[in-house]
Design a protein around this nucleic acid. Structure first.
Lengths: 235, 235
DNA sequence: AAGTGGTCTAGACCACACA
DNA sequence: GTGTGGTCTAGACCACTTA
């Protein structure tokens, strides 16, 4: 664990342990430097990390403040897939519908930057939140990277296994969303009527070295789909 | 303009001018240091900025690469509101429906962190993309911060005026979205039937000092609502 | 082993907020 | 004016990739 990550974690923990609210002022830079025995740059690195994650905001000439506006019941759109953290207050479970190795069609092959005669793991599952259907998810994993999957792994957190079990490093993702009407088949899985609204998301996940390893298509139950995103607008 | 921002801009320009594609390798750090006559940290600062914006990805031990996967017709969800940049390929216009000064209800007052007897500017407008209705937008601006608005300003880019005209610095935003069915009234404005899907977004925009200045409710026409989001998953 | 990006430090200097 | 965060530098050392 890097020093600036460790410091960031400690500060975040401090905020949670003391239940500090939006706008609460944190100790000044110099205090943090001596408290953590680190140079200015390292502290700033830690704070920038927290700022990126939406936990603090820094005001030049004034101080470092807690950022903590979140509506209850809203899921973080940018870290709900495959990750359990940030879903503390939600109980997420999965039901596996299909799991096999197959050849990709051209859209999938293109997204994963492979050929149509290469193998992919195909996973289809329904995810539940607090006992209700959250989404229908179809994922395609490049088998050359994600070399092995089984039903047990797939019913838990796939991403956790990819990181811990396979030792792969997840880097970045491209997420595409739009809204549409639910098809009859999707409705069957989600327990909803045909024609009601849906949120449809396609995501390409890449390793830190830029290789795409997972292409996912997710259809969300609109009744459970309340998301929040925290953004930083300045440079 | 700060040095690292200027360098980031130049690199981005270089990518666009040469139409470099995803995965293209950029010059190594040392080259960039001498080319821009800057220290290592400054170059890394510039690259981190570009990485945050989704324009490059850095691979330790390997190089710096162009990130440029974008689907045509998809709007960047995180920088479409009020901002013209990043909307190069789209023609966005606005029709102002209402503009007045009023007292906020408790929800608005709460979101803007003001009292219900304080004044807010209320703006209701329809935004068009390439001639079609994109969304119906209702915005509430804290009048103590956004001291003046008129019809002309409001039919152009409000955020541009806030930054350039009023000299305010926009910091961060909290965005909440969900999917639902369109009401009859919303349908009237968007030219759609009651009951069809909609994407509904509420956003609280803050200045760099943490003060909320704008609370917006936006109902998107689902036919035009194709969004992308680029995310970095590592620390 | 060589190449390349990342972390960390100490310190000078700058920009902004607030009283 | 004082306090506080931000930028920038030079350089040592570390971690990962590639061949």
């Amino acid at each position: 664990m890097l020093k600036y990550q460790a410091i960031a974690n400690e500060i975040k923990q401090f905020i949670e342990d003391n239940d500090l609210q939006q706008g609460h002022k944190l100790p000044v830079l110099e205090s943090l430097m001596s408290q953590f025995k680190a140079s200015k740059s390292t502290i700033i690195n830690a704070l920038d990390l927290l700022e990126k994650k939406g936990d603090v905001y820094q005001v030049r000439g004034s101080g470092i403040f807690v950022r903590r506006h979140r509506r209850k019941g809203y899921i973080n759109l940018l870290s709900n897939q495959g990750f359990k953290k940030d879903l503390d207050n939600f109980q997420i479970t999965s039901e596996v519908i299909e799991l096999d190795v197959r050849k990709p069609n051209s859209e999938v092959a293109d997204s994963l930057n492979i050929h149509i005669h290469d193998d992919v793991y195909y996973v289809k599952r329904i995810r539940y939140i607090n006992g209700k259907t959250l989404c229908l998810e179809e994922s395609f994993f490049n088998k050359a990277i994600v070399t092995y999957l089984n039903k047990e792994i797939v019913s838990e957190s796939i991403f956790n296994y990819i990181q811990e079990g396979l030792g792969l490093k997840i880097g970045f993702s491209d997420l595409y969303i739009h809204v549409d009407k639910l098809t009859a088949e999707e409705g069957k899985y989600l327990g909803l009527n045909e024609g009601v609204p849906k949120l449809f998301a396609e995501t390409i996940f890449h390793l830190t070295n830029g290789q795409p390893f997972d292409f996912s298509k997710v259809t969300y139950n609109y009744e459970q789909s309340h998301f929040f995103i925290q953004e930083n607008l300045h440079d």
